[in-house]
Write a protein that binds this DNA or RNA. Structure first.
Length: 724
DNA sequence: TTGTTCCAGCTTTTT
DNA sequence: GCTGGAACAA
């Protein structure tokens, strides 16, 4: 047995963690301190030295990427297959449990997973049926409320009807939403976790089964767990003290989406005998960078406390550049990158990190202007694209006719003459009879309660889906997808669409067939569940990773949040200004301010060799010129670590932007005049306010007595000149 | 069905 | 000040 491979590459603290006895263990892992290595080697140790079967191990992460990496590294280290080991995201594992035990979880066998945009659509439709004004009940806010409740493990039935009208209405919406999901077999992300928790909690036999199976439970990024996730972990580990959690309270940056840093403290309280191991030796950054990071994070209260150190050298000072404006800032950064590349540095070792996505633009422009390849992270992922979602909706509908959200999505995509009024009737019947849109449509057709045209169109649609389902039955997964893409009419629809990037969309649809092929090849499916349902869930749960296309040597642009877990030799932290970073919305609340500070800590510790911080003396924000102060975080870096860049890379005081605005030209050919009284057959009497355009394009703005101000095309509107 | 105008909103993001 | 979505005119 070769344990040197497992033990030798570790430092003392890491080794202590890896070889720790099976007891509640908290590994406080600073940035760049080898956190993943500890998890991987710990699992390897348990298998190779303690003789555990991979079958007995559970490892939970937050992202698919992290899960994949962990599995890969374990396989590499041990050279054994790991398919029997449960490694995955909280959501992925919850999903697996629910699929396995759909019946006990009171879910239909082919329940569907909704992603957040699906969820938002459902909520919008729900508000509509409840006849609530979206302005008063913003769908986003409703979504936030519902997800918040689920994260806390609260269902509608747990909430007492209070007196606060707002709360009462929210509760009513939540209840209606739950009903809808129940009826149509839809499960959102929060529901996956909540349902999985309830499943184990309410079924002692099942719980005992999994408790006996998972002898060791490992949790990555524990500071990001929310209430229900931690509750779920505790259920599984009851009486066993077999939780091995790794996290860093200083890198908790997701409080705003329900992460409870308190879970770290509760863990310590609930396991008084727990083992606490701090990983403080950093293998990533220079001592200068670490000193800056330590000094900033020290400003926060209530930390468990640790200090990063390294035995590598001081390295270069931190450059701070005060830009004249945001263009100058971009210019400076791009110049620096050019110098780096000229000295033989790789572009992919360089990252530009910003607080908000909107900041990427000026950097993109400058990079483009200098022909520097770059890649912006974030944005639409493959499975989030409308054309992909449409294809998936057909597949879902084939698998589950009760999926109203998918029904709505594709009933008239591509257009087949099923208009809003027909749909409204269908919805109404569905509501009255408490059935799905599918069933309502079928009965409406049977009873001949629709116009012949609407009835036929609807019938064509239902038959299309039925036919697809029938034809797909015997096919391989990728053939099913191919069938749907081609026979639904989607592909043809996008191919003929010349204006709206239709070609690209058609290509994406073809790519979807490939994705299905790949999925099929990689899928283990130990529980032999329907592959189509698994693929659909995969699309919702793992929407990223499809865009890892070009391997070109690129500069990396991303938000500070998405940089977590990554490292770069040269890091630019830009826009480090009060109001931007920390964000204006966070400065009045100490808790949120501290989270911003942790974000700053995360940003700084991404840098391996060189860190460059920039701020601008003036910045255009929401269309207004602002003159922000340098961020307070800058002052928290000891001055001796900083080298201010004095020279202006480029004095780019912009020439005063011309105030010229083309005025709306008054049409000379018109027979109408300003102030002219006219009358319109539909809108009645009014007075001309403005004229523009010529000939067929000529338009007039008219203030109508009855209906107010409107723009009308003169060539269409039949206006009568009135005396007056 | 399509093209235009209007209007709110505006941190961070994974699953 | 820009952008995406809703509302509206044709």
């Amino acid at each position: 047995m070769d344990i040197t491979k497992i033990i030798d590459p570790l430092n003392d603290a890491q080794r202590q963690a890896v070889t720790a006895p099976s007891t509640a263990t908290l590994v406080l892992a600073g940035a760049g301190s080898g956190k993943t290595r500890v998890l991987v080697h710990r699992i390897a140790w348990q298998i190779q030295v303690l003789g555990l079967s991979p079958h007995n191990i559970l490892a939970v992460t937050f992202t698919n990427k992290a899960a994949k990496e962990m599995r890969g590294r374990i396989e590499e280290l041990l050279n054994i297959p790991t398919y029997s080991m449960w490694i995955g995201t909280f959501h992925g594992i919850a999903h697996r449990l629910l699929r396995r035990h759909a019946q006990q979880a009171k879910l239909p066998e082919s329940f569907q997973v909704m992603d957040s945009s699906d969820q938002l659509r459902v909520i919008k439709r729900l508000l509509n049926t409840l006849q609530l004004d979206e302005a008063k009940w913003p769908p986003k806010q409703v979504q936030w409320h519902i997800n918040g409740q689920k994260d806390e493990g609260i269902r509608a039935k747990h909430t007492r009807e209070g007196h606060d009208p707002y709360q009462r209405q929210m509760l009513a919406i939540y209840r209606a939403y739950e009903d809808f999901c129940e009826r149509s077999g839809m499960v959102d992300f929060g529901e996956l976790l909540l349902r999985a928790h309830e499943l184990l909690r309410d079924d002692p036999e099942l719980l005992a089964f999994y408790q006996q199976r998972f002898l060791q439970i490992h949790v990555d990024e524990f500071q990001d767990t929310n209430t229900i996730q931690y509750a779920w972990l505790r259920l599984l580990s009851t009486d066993k003290d077999n939780l091995f959690v790794v996290g860093d309270d200083d890198q908790s940056i997701y409080g705003w989406r329900g992460a409870k840093i308190e879970n770290l403290y509760s863990f310590q309280k609930q396991h008084p005998q727990h083992l606490l191991i701090k990983l403080e030796q950093n293998y990533r950054s220079t001592s200068t960078i670490l000193k800056a990071a330590n000094s900033i994070i020290a400003q926060n209260d209530g930390r468990i406390g640790k200090e990063l150190w390294t035995d590598s050298g001081d390295g270069e000072a931190i450059s701070v550049y005060s830009a004249f404006n945001e263009l100058d800032e971009a210019y400076f950064v791009v110049e620096r990158i050019r110098a780096w590349v000229n000295q033989g540095g790789a572009r992919s070792d360089v990252a530009i990190l910003y607080r908000s996505n909107a900041q990427s633009r000026q950097f993109e422009e400058k990079l483009m202007a200098t022909n520097t390849p770059y890649r912006v992270y974030g944005g639409l992922r493959f499975f989030d694209r409308a054309e992909i979602k449409n294809a998936m909706a057909y597949l879902r509908l084939m698998s589950n006719h009760g999926d109203d959200a998918s029904f709505e999505r594709v009933v008239n995509t591509p257009t087949r003459g099923i208009g809003a009024s027909t749909l409204e009737i269908v919805r109404q019947v569905a509501r009255e009879q408490g059935v799905s849109l599918w069933v309502a449509s079928a009965s409406l057709i049977d009873q001949g309660r629709l116009s012949a045209r609407a009835s036929n169109a609807l019938k064509t649609f239902l038959q299309l889906v039925l036919r697809l389902a029938e034809q797909a039955e015997a096919l391989e997964l990728f053939e099913k997808v191919k069938l749907v893409v081609e026979s639904s009419g989607l592909l043809a629809f996008y191919k003929q669409d010349k204006v709206d990037k239709g070609e690209e969309k058609a290509e994406n649809l073809e790519e979807l067939v490939n994705a299905a092929k790949l999925f099929d090849a990689n899928q283990e499916n130990p529980d032999s569940l329907p592959e189509l349902d698994l693929f659909l869930a995969y699309a919702a749960l793992e929407s990223g990773d499809m865009q890892a296309d070009d391997f070109e040597d690129c500069v990396q642009l991303m938000t500070l949040h998405s940089a977590k877990g990554l490292e770069f030799k040269l890091v630019f932290m830009v826009g480090v200004e009060e109001g931007l970073f920390p964000s204006q919305q966070s400065v009045d609340d100490i808790g949120r301010l501290e989270e911003e500070r942790r974000l700053c800590y995360v940003g700084i510790t991404r840098a391996m060799q060189q860190l460059c911080v920039t701020y601008s003396e003036s910045r255009r924000l929401y269309g207004r010129e602002s003159y922000p102060k340098p961020s307070r975080f800058l002052k928290e870096i000891p001055a001796e670590l900083i080298q201010e860049v004095r020279i202006r890379a480029h004095v780019s005081r912009p020439a005063a932007v011309s105030a010229y605005k083309p005025e709306r030209l008054t049409s000379s050919t018109s027979s109408y005049k300003l102030g002219q009284r006219v009358s319109h057959e539909k809108f009645g009497e009014g007075i001309i306010l403005q004229l523009e355009g010529d000939g067929a394009q000529e338009r007039v703005q008219i203030n109508f007595k009855q209906v107010g101000v409107k723009w009308l095309m003169l060539s269409y509107a039949k206006l009568q000149v009135m005396a007056g």
